[in-house]
Design a binder for these strands. Structure first.
Lengths: 217, 217
DNA sequence: CGCAAATCTAGACAGTGTCAAGAAATGGCG
DNA sequence: CGCCATTTCTTGACACTGTCTAGATTTGCG
């Protein structure tokens, strides 16, 4: 423990392996990534990860879990330093969504790479669901409807999610040159406009949005 | 040639390898996919693909090129059996976009997996650009603006593309249960509504669309 | 102290992509 | 037609991958 420079037992190898894997994922491509290389980076033998994560898919699942947690944090951090008005909150969550994707493209692709249905890891599913629920709540706060029953709210959830996710995924690939070539200010304005267009009802009038102040949560 | 059952020279191995690779990609996961397995499926030695595609990335590029071509065909096929009205044309292109993604999820992920900037293969870039230009033209036909100069058109392009791409990518993963759980009819209606919400101006009046008949094509 | 459990190492195995050398078929030129 | 350069494919080898098994080392608990 303490220093834990080089003892037979690492102390907290699981976290160290996750850290190494995250760096490895950030530097190299998805196919350059190897279990042995992260083990080497962590300074342990090639078979050490097996005991903590079992399979390589186990490490991926743990990595994706960690990713979803930070994903949610990024969105909340963006929202924290913004107006409490629901519409603005949802907008900032969307920016956080895109921020995370562009900051950690490989991790983002890993998180959304596998099909939702075939997730067996309970921790991963919990973290992913938490991130999803956050989006649902933010949309519901804007529409004012129940996500489970109100069809307009359900459509709005799918709409906003698709728009933000599509922007994130496309900007990772650098596809829409109309977005990537634009100056940062222009880009933010365009994103704002685009995300806003996917919202159910931006506002009927300028005074309408102030109604949220009475409740304000 | 002729029968070409089993001669030393295959005849058209390149096409056969692409076909085998496509099937392999459809059946197995991205990581199960291997150069040797497609060679075995095509009935040739494990080193045969190297001469036609050089690297494994070369095969991937060729496969993605083939994918983008079919991607474009799928959209055009959808549009062909629909009204010539620009708004409806764009909508059908979007449905084709999503159709293709759900029919060939692995290929779709392969096509959009790599960053746009680091594409060196000229054929791949050409096919991808062709697909992108098709979208641009369809959006421009709705807005009536120049894609290069009109900022509203540029924003509309990014908006529509992001929405449709986001829907496609999310539905591959089965993420938005509000969409995947819905009955097919409901889903189409929701998609129509969602895609429509990302459009600049749905329509000013019902008679407006008939103007396309005069020009047609 | 002693021993079971947990943690990590070392070695082996099948499978991967890539490279070099050579065999087999093709096509052009005399 | 005959011959040879070129293309196409095979074979074998190499380093590397993930996973399995056996064993070494450390920890923790009675």
């Amino acid at each position: 423990m303490t220093g834990s420079e080089k003892s037979y037992h690492h102390g907290d190898l699981r976290a160290a392996l996750l850290h190494a894997a995250e760096q490895e994922l950030g530097e190299k491509d998805r196919d350059q990534f190897s279990l042995r290389s992260v083990a080497k980076r962590a300074g342990v033998s090639h078979a050490a990860p097996a005991h903590h994560f079992g399979d390589v898919t186990g490490l991926m699942a743990a990595l994706a879990t960690l990713g979803f947690d930070r994903f949610l944090e990024t969105q909340k951090a963006r929202q924290a330093q913004a107006s409490a008005e629901p519409h603005e909150q949802l907008l900032q969550a969307g920016f956080g969504y895109i921020d995370f994707a562009m900051s950690h493209p490989a991790l983002f692709r890993l998180m959304f790479g596998k099909s939702w249905g075939e997730i067996s890891d309970v921790a991963l599913k919990a973290s992913a669901d938490a991130a999803f629920d956050h989006l649902v709540q933010n949309v519901a706060a804007v529409t004012g409807g129940d996500p489970e029953t109100d069809p307009d709210t359900r459509t709005a959830i799918a709409s906003v999610w698709a728009m933000v996710h599509g922007l994130a995924d496309l900007m990772i690939g650098g596809a829409p040159r109309y977005l990537t070539e634009a100056a940062p200010d222009d880009r933010d304005r365009m994103l704002r406009q685009i995300i806003g267009s996917s919202l159910p009802a931006p506002e009927a009038g300028p005074a309408q949005g102030a109604a949220a102040d009475t409740i304000h949560d």
